[in-house]
Design a protein around this nucleic acid. Sequence first.
DNA 1: CTGTTAGCGCATTCAA
DNA 2: TTGAATGCGCTAACAG
Lengths: 347, 347
Amino acid sequence: MPEQPTTEPRRSTLVLVAERAGVSIASVSRVLNGQPASPQLAERVRRAADELGYVPDASARTLKTGRTDQLALAVADLGNPVYVKMMHEVARVAAKNGYRLVLSSTGSDADDQIELLNSLNRGFADGLLLSPLRVTDELVAALQASRIPAVVIGSLPPEAGVDSVRADSVAGVGLAVEHLVAAGRHRIAFVNGPVDTVPGAARLEGYLRAIDRLGLATTADLQIAASDFTYKAGRKAASRLLQQCSPDAIVCANDLIAVAALKELAARGLRVPEDVAVVGMDDSEAAELADPGLTSVNLGSAKRARTAAKLLIRRLENPGADAQTVTIEPTLTVRESTLAAGGEARA
Amino acid sequence: MPEQPTTEPRRSTLVLVAERAGVSIASVSRVLNGQPASPQLAERVRRAADELGYVPDASARTLKTGRTDQLALAVADLGNPVYVKMMHEVARVAAKNGYRLVLSSTGSDADDQIELLNSLNRGFADGLLLSPLRVTDELVAALQASRIPAVVIGSLPPEAGVDSVRADSVAGVGLAVEHLVAAGRHRIAFVNGPVDTVPGAARLEGYLRAIDRLGLATTADLQIAASDFTYKAGRKAASRLLQQCSPDAIVCANDLIAVAALKELAARGLRVPEDVAVVGMDDSEAAELADPGLTSVNLGSAKRARTAAKLLIRRLENPGADAQTVTIEPTLTVRESTLAAGGEARA
DNA sequence: CTGTTAGCGCATTCAA
DNA sequence: TTGAATGCGCTAACAG
């Protein structure tokens, strides 16, 4: 039994509420926004609003005030647990400060991010958080020209003049390699993500520097780059790696790739950590869920996300301030995948 | 070197563009919206708009037209890979039809969903997709009273008069149990999620019915409910389960819980599938990543998401239509975690 | 403390 | 085909 199609109840507006309460629309607006009013008037307004099921219209308010009370978070790959973690943190900070969070999933290209920025310039959000994999000059330019302030979670050229919160990937990979060396590993391989991404480049540098600093050797055989930061690509890369060399440890550019390496090793009958130790990066839920538990470099993604959100909110309140760059230091979370070579394996 | 704070370039509007092009704002609006205009006029308008970097304001347009071109997707737990998959599908369908997708993460309570609905009633989106874990009368009422149409991904009382796309969980669990029986398992345990959720209730029913139908026996010992559908809760539940009974197979209410069961079994030195077979539900990425690969009931989440999105778009175009309920049939994806008992284990 | 009024930027009706 | 004018629902001056 469908309702009468014509008698649509017409959403209530300030005018309707005002009429019902017998006051002016200005008074309604004031009361509903918590501005001073006499108790009786306030009471009548609230009653009328309740009875009418009044809900203020967002677009009208935004048009008038220029504010949306929304923060946008652009994430390139929601399949990656790191972004999920970041999202949670941002959502918390946003909510605490009276902002709603709108998620925009984008592709991984800088172009996608630019398109998103344009879309945001139509006024959907008051500010933007984004964590770009690839940073081009165009992206930086778009960021600078943006109508709304943006904070980048990741590394940016310092002269960009855009707020950013970066992880120290170089130090992070160093932590991993040092840990492996301390555990008695020597032939340390590296499965990277795409080198033309910001994190990819940084992690490769970290690997090479650590190998060098610790007086180890590496060869081209020991290094490989997956085509992206996903499990599937990681699996392929790990397979090729194990065809071309026999490491006693593998450092992976993120946890998804590390899980892939774990699977690939198992498929080849290699034991972890006895035969090969594995380290991931991001210390995401995937590291905890993996079997064996995955030692992982915590790049502070949660803290970065929180910090970025706070930075953005601060900038919204104070648009004139100079751009900041914050760096979060990495730590290492040790799990079963890197137990020392002197453990059970020796028995 | 901060920019001059006062000389803010003032975002360009229709008026600015019109002035620059020497035409009326109406003409600018028409040209930019692809309505007929003389080629010369169109050309001048476009030029002016380009030079000014004009971007139409979303709130103004929405205020005028009543449309946002946005679809909202409410997901209760982004930590669950199923929702990530759904999101991807919805995003695709939305984009193809000219809608942007805004994600709203909510809590798992019906109240949270209601709050979200209220928020949406402010006009942030033209339609809503949601997948509620718990359905209360209040939720149904809110859905019906909603200013914007909603489509539920999940089960709803038929009389609700709200579009919905449901999975057949009962049949799905049946598939799992049958498969296990065919593989020679008899003592089939069940780790459920909360029974006061819609999927929790349905999956329990499916388990009991299948056990009954296949002439097996079950006891309270063989059943347990995790406090929610997460890995952590699943781990706790699996641990308790294995204290109180010794099953040769475990059916889990979702993949996350199944992965937890896998880990718990490994921790106790039980082999999968030799000692215990494990089946998950949702056939999400977690099932593929698990070691051993997890046999899982595919409840058609991708298809459900796509279908729901299409349903919503159809309803936006045709608000008068009667509410529909679509059911997606489950299938089973077999992986290593349930290889037949007659396999290697017998050697 | 309360009411009147002017626009925010846009799509659109009505004239020309 | 084009321009002038109206109003979407709201907030914030300004008056009273």
